[in-house]
């Protein structure tokens, strides 16, 4: 029984870690966005305000996939172990 619960907890933690690999994508995307924004500001310093606003909006939208991964990781750490262990205990009964 202890081994089964241990496997459940360990696999939940591993899954949470694996889910956060998705953090790579938004990182690269936001880096590209900021790099382009810097370039644009360097070329046309007078439209700094609108470029910054647009960049922040773009960053927020690029972040979404990363946040999906974060939500899944948080569910795996805080919610899934309780649920799975309960299912296991009920099944053993």
């Amino acid at each position: 029984m202890e081994i089964a619960i241990g496997i459940i907890l360990g696999c939940c933690a591993l899954g949470a870690g694996a889910a956060m690999i998705a953090g790579i994508g938004p990182g690269i995307g936001e880096g590209n966005a900021v790099a382009s924004a810097c370039e644009a500001i360097g070329r046309q310093p007078e439209c700094k305000g609108s470029v910054t606003t647009t960049m922040l909006m773009g960053c927020a939208i690029a972040e979404t996939t990363g946040l999906y991964a974060l939500v899944i990781a948080i569910l795996l750490i805080f919610v899934a172990p309780n649920m799975l262990v309960n299912i296991l205990l009920n099944a053993v009964k």
Binding site: E63, L67, L70
Partner: peptide, 16 residues
């Protein structure tokens, strides 16, 4: 769904 998760995830990740 994406609007809710974006706002919630950003605030929660900061707290965590």
């Amino acid at each position: 769904i994406s609007m809710a998760f974006r706002h919630y995830g950003n605030v929660l990740s900061g707290a965590v």
